[in-house]
């Protein structure tokens, strides 16, 4: 179960509002490669894991992603909370504002609402860990794209932190995959699903 600490994992103190940037960064909140997808993916996959240490890793990284979700929401909130009506109208943020005012709602920059199709929980450890490694790279790429667009150091610092965390997570999922391969038959890793099949060959 979860405890809550009333602080952000990394501080966010943005002085200058920026509606255009908020519309971009929202992809890391509810977009296809964002933190909501990441946390739901890992926290959903962990139940079917056949090895406790891998289930533990998924729980810990999934929990950290929830903290990142909170950071991204904070960035969007601070970029938009002091916007004037004129800024809202001029920046194209009016399309979001009409449905949500300044509320935070999980969608991608292009408007696609967050949905479970943005992640998979396949119930096969090799498949799920491969998905997780890809997910971390997708998130890292998205942060690269965001960094190209930012000039404000108040926004840069938390984004750079979040991007680096994706790289570390990639390494950990890669290690979990090594641990898994090491426990399976090296002649054929795919002979059976260790989380489902009771035996390799029942003949």
């Amino acid at each position: 179960m979860w405890s809550y600490e009333k602080r952000l994992q990394f501080p966010v103190n943005i002085k200058e509002p920026n509606a255009k940037l908020a519309q971009i960064i929202i992809s890391q909140y509810g977009g296809p490669d964002g933190e909501m997808g990441a946390s739901m993916r890992y926290l959903s996959q962990r139940y079917a894991m056949p090895y406790r240490d891998v289930a533990g890793l998924l729980t810990d990284i999934g929990t950290e992603e929830l903290a990142h979700l909170e950071m991204v929401a904070t960035i969007i909130h601070q970029l938009t909370r002091n916007l004037s009506m004129e800024e809202i109208e001029k920046s194209g943020f009016d399309k979001y504002y009409v449905d949500h005012t300044l509320g935070i709602w999980p969608q991608a920059a292009g408007g696609v609402p967050f949905n479970a199709c943005e992640f998979q929980s396949k119930g096969d450890i090799i498949t799920d860990l491969s998905e997780d490694m890809a997910a971390e790279q997708k998130a890292r790429s998205t942060y690269d794209n965001i960094l190209r667009m930012i000039k404000d150091p108040d926004v840069c610092e938390p984004i750079k932190f979040l991007r680096e965390r994706e790289i570390v997570h990639y390494q950990r999922f890669g290690e979990a995959l090594r641990l898994t391969a090491d426990r399976l038959n090296e002649k054929n890793f795919y002979a059976f699903n260790p989380g489902f099949d009771r035996c390799e060959d029942c003949n």
Partner: peptide, 13 residues
């Protein structure tokens, strides 16, 4: 500030 305690995992953009 970097986002990891391990220098070998620091890969800035």
């Amino acid at each position: 500030r970097i986002g990891t305690i391990f220098p070998e995992l620091n890969k800035p953009f």
